[in-house]
């Protein structure tokens, strides 16, 4: 009996802390899971933190692609039918193929790509975009992010409740920033199958930091049905794209 009372007190205190942190999306009022599965359990309230800035770090082109893939998966959940997202990059690096975004459940025409020239301009554009509450999410591709800059971005989203993703490609140091999470996503070999072909792609997701939550790492498989958490290596099912199938629809 005594223990139950204690727990309710702790819960109340947690709610107060969350309120003090002005992170309303984390409050118990709208505990709507966005459908990412187990990963969301790491966040306070078991809900993916919307209206916050997430930091993702990648160190190679392959990792960057998987990171973009993970961002696209989350975006697909955040903006299923309406809304716009800004995808801001420094000029020589943007390489998203819009046609592929459709596979992640995003209408590519609802993503506005901005090529801002210099890092300074990119940061400015990201901040301006994060302040704009008409957007659903903002993806920023930059290399370096100082602590002060990350504070500015975090302050911007606290007012506007836009979700921000800062994708840092090959940063010099993994310095501390004020973002609520830090992710690293790597490709891993897909499940061995009976039929030839590459099958569904698999990623190793590392959640290295999460404010008020539990860090963790997962191996996930991305299929058109969504993120799956295979405990054992899955067998590749028959409905993936195999050589024979592609052979049949050779296009001339």
């Amino acid at each position: 009996m005594r223990k139950v009372a204690d727990r309710s007190i702790i819960e109340q205190l947690q709610q107060q802390i969350i309120k003090l942190q002005k992170n309303e999306t984390l409050s118990a009022e709208q505990p709507l899971s966005i459908g990412l599965g187990t990963i969301e359990d790491s966040f306070p309230g078991n809900v993916f933190a919307k209206g916050a800035v997430h930091e993702l770090i990648s160190n190679s082109a392959e990792e960057a692609t998987c990171t973009s893939g993970f961002i696209s998966v989350v975006l697909g959940k955040l903006m299923p039918n309406t809304g716009y997202c800004l995808w801001i990059s420094t000029v020589p690096r943007r390489s998203i193929f819009p046609n592929a975004l459709k596979g992640f459940g995003i209408d590519p025409e609802r993503i506005l790509f901005v090529d801002a020239g210099k890092t300074k301009d990119t940061l400015w554009a990201i901040e301006e975009a994060l302040k704009c509450d008409a957007l659903i999410a903002v993806v920023g591709e930059i290399t370096e992010l100082t602590f002060n800059d990350s504070r500015r971005l975090q302050l911007a989203v606290e007012k506007s409740h836009v979700t921000g993703f800062i994708h840092r490609f090959r940063p010099k140091t993994e310095n501390a920033v004020a973002c609520v999470t830090r992710w690293k996503i790597k490709p891993i070999t897909s499940a061995a199958g009976e039929t030839p072909g590459v099958g569904f792609s698999r990623w190793h997701i590392d959640l290295l930091k999460v404010r008020n939550g539990k860090i963790g790492n997962w191996e996930v498989q991305w299929s058109p049905k969504g993120l799956e958490y295979p405990s054992t290596p899955l067998r590749v099912t028959g409905d993936d794209v195999s050589i024979q199938e592609i052979d049949e629809r050779q296009i001339g």
């Binding site: 506005l112 790509f113 090529d115 801002a116 704009c132 008409a134």
Partner: peptide
């Protein structure tokens, strides 16, 4: 209304990056 807010944002951004820096793709 949302779109006009976004348009204003894009206008400010394009003021800095130039209008050729903003893309929206259609199939």
């Amino acid at each position: 209304k949302d779109e006009s807010v976004i348009a204003e944002l894009l206008d400010r951004i394009s003021g800095k990056t130039g209008v050729q820096g903003i893309h929206r793709y259609l199939p």
